[in-house]
Each structure stands twice: as structure tokens, then as C-alpha cells.
Computed example of a mutant assay.
Amino acid sequence: MQKYADYIKEIEIDSLWSGRRHVVWKLDRRVNILSGINGVGKSTIINKVVKSVGPNGDITNHLMKGVHITVCPEDAGFIRYDVIRSFDRPLLNADVIGEMGANLATELDWQLFKLQRKYLDYQVNIGNRIIAVLQSGQPDAAIMAQRISEPKKKFQDLIDDLFSDTGKTIIRTENEIKFSQIGEALYPYQLSSGEKQMLAILLTVLIEDNQPYVLFMDEPEVSLHIEWQKRLIDLILELNDNVQIILTTHSPAVVMNGWIDKITEVSDITDNE
């Protein structure tokens, strides 16, 4: 049986920039913010770690030499993780996707399209769990069922609050995510870039279903309003307190709500070899 780690304790990279730099980064259980000037290697470090574990989260058989990951518990062989990147670039294969019946134009649109499918699976999963609890005959079954549905409601409430200035609210009677704005129904791909980015981040966190996992984010503040940047880390932790955040940023706003002591400069974790 695959054993999954709760979080990453340390990242070591001995081949950064063709072996000229050695990285040792001891991580916090909850929030880790990598900072530094352009070109210093922030994104390179994140990308090397993600590539080393591969799509299945295998930390036993690293796909990239020179990357060593220590986790808790130490005998775990896998990690659950997600990756959020910041660029809302045009889709290179938009014509192919258009044939699927999806009106998508950017990479964020495609990401949200895939997240919609996972969101439907998530709802089926929690629906089955609620039914099982209600049929169990336990005296507190109704309370337990409400707890199972609470993260979804919290996600919807958070999005409604964030989008309130433009009058958008999630249509809660729909199985997939749609919005109502002045009586008109909107799909996620009709949102602004900043709204898409925030929706993608929080939806990614929600569908991990409160499990321990690692959320890698490379400059997630791009396109986000400064007030959303300030709230970003708190919103993520509010949806899933078991997440470990590892992010790169250039924005002071991201750390303004009490996260300054979680900043690590690239120069502090690298040595010339």
C-alpha cells in the first residue's frame, strides 16, 4: 500500500545550474516563501522538485538526479501535491480543445476546465460519504453529515466574498461551477484573469479534500489585486489546514498578513560548490 507523507521537511539539490550551486532548504510545516531577485533560481528550485517527484508523487524513485527530499513521516514513499503557476497565456492547441465543445482561450481556462471535472468527482465523493453517514444510524449522523459538506460551503462563501465587488455569486444549484451576475449566468472562462487565478487556487485546495498535501505556487500573485494577495495564504489555510505551502513571490503584499518570518532568501540556502 502506498504511504503518503504529511509534508516535506527538507529539500536538497546538488545540481543547481549545472552543479555550480548546492541547495539545502529546511521547510516549515505550513508556510514557506522563497524570495530573491530575478534570475537567482527561485522557479528553478520549485521546478526541479516538482520534476523529481513526477506526476505520481513518487519520492522513492526520483526522476531527476541531484534532488533529495526528506519527508514526515520519513518512511513515506509518496507525496500528494499540486502546482499553481501564474501565467494566463494563450493556449497553443486551442483549436483542438475547441473541438471538445469547450470555449477556452488561455492556459488558465484549460486548467479551470480540468478542475471542473475534478470538482464533480469531489462532489460525488462527499455525497457518497454523507449518504453513508446518514444511513449509519448514529445519533449524531446529521451533525457529521454537515461537517462533511462544510468545506464546500466555505469555498463557495469565500468566492462569493472575493467576487462581491463585481456582483458575481456562485450558482449553488449547479453541479459545476457557474456564476450569476445581474441575472446572467457566467462560466469560469468568462471571468477576469485575476478571478480565474484565485478560483483556480482555491478550487485546487478544496478538491484535495482536507488531506495533507504540498501546494507549490510559482508567483501566484500575478493578476491578483493587492488585497487578494494579502489574503492569499490565509484563504488557503482556511480551506485546508493540512496543506503545506511552498511558493515563490516578488510581492511584499503576499507576506503582509503575518508571514514575513516564513521568507527564505535563495542566497541563504545556496552554497557555491
Rank of each mutant, 00 (worst) to 15 (best):
M1P: 07
M1T: 10
Y4W: 05
A5C: 05
Y7W: 15
K9F: 03
E10M: 15
E10R: 14
I13T: 01
D14M: 00
L16P: 01
S18C: 06
G19P: 01
R20W: 04
R20V: 13
R21Q: 12
H22N: 09
K26T: 08
L27T: 05
R30Q: 13
V31F: 02
V31A: 05
I37A: 15
N38D: 08
V40Y: 00
G41P: 03
I45V: 13
K48Y: 05
K48R: 07
V49L: 09
V50W: 00
S52G: 10
S52W: 04
G54A: 00
G54H: 04
D58I: 04
D58A: 02
D58L: 05
I59S: 06
N61Q: 11
L63S: 04
V67S: 01
V67E: 05
T70F: 11
V71E: 08
P73M: 05
P73H: 10
E74G: 09
D75C: 11
I79C: 07
D82V: 07
V83T: 05
I84L: 06
I84T: 08
D88P: 03
P90Y: 02
L92H: 12
D95P: 00
V96N: 07
E99L: 15
M100I: 09
N103H: 06
N103S: 14
N103Q: 09
T106W: 08
T106E: 07
D109T: 11
Q111L: 10
L112A: 02
K114L: 10
K114V: 03
L115D: 04
Y119K: 04
V124A: 07
G127C: 04
N128F: 01
N128M: 03
I130N: 01
I130M: 06
I131H: 03
V133H: 11
V133T: 15
Q135T: 12
Q138R: 15
D140C: 05
D140F: 13
A141I: 02
A142G: 00
M144C: 12
M144A: 15
E150A: 13
P151N: 08
P151S: 07
P151Y: 03
K152F: 05
L158F: 12
L162K: 07
L162C: 08
S164F: 06
T169N: 10
I171D: 15
I171M: 10
T173Q: 15
E174P: 02
N175R: 10
E176C: 00
K178S: 11
F179G: 00
Y187S: 10
Y187K: 01
Q190C: 09
S192E: 08
S192I: 11
K196Y: 03
Q197P: 10
Q197D: 04
T204P: 05
T204K: 09
L206C: 04
I207L: 13
E208V: 05
N210V: 06
P212L: 12
P212I: 11
L215D: 05
F216R: 02
E219Y: 02
E221C: 01
S223F: 10
L224R: 08
L224F: 03
E227V: 11
W228P: 01
K230C: 04
K230I: 07
L232P: 03
D234N: 13
D234T: 09
L239H: 03
N240T: 04
D241Q: 15
N242H: 14
Q244S: 01
T248K: 03
H250N: 14
S251E: 04
V254I: 12
V255E: 09
V255T: 09
M256T: 10
N257L: 14
G258K: 11
I260N: 04
I260P: 01
D261L: 10
V266N: 01
D268R: 14
D271F: 02
N272E: 14
E273H: 13
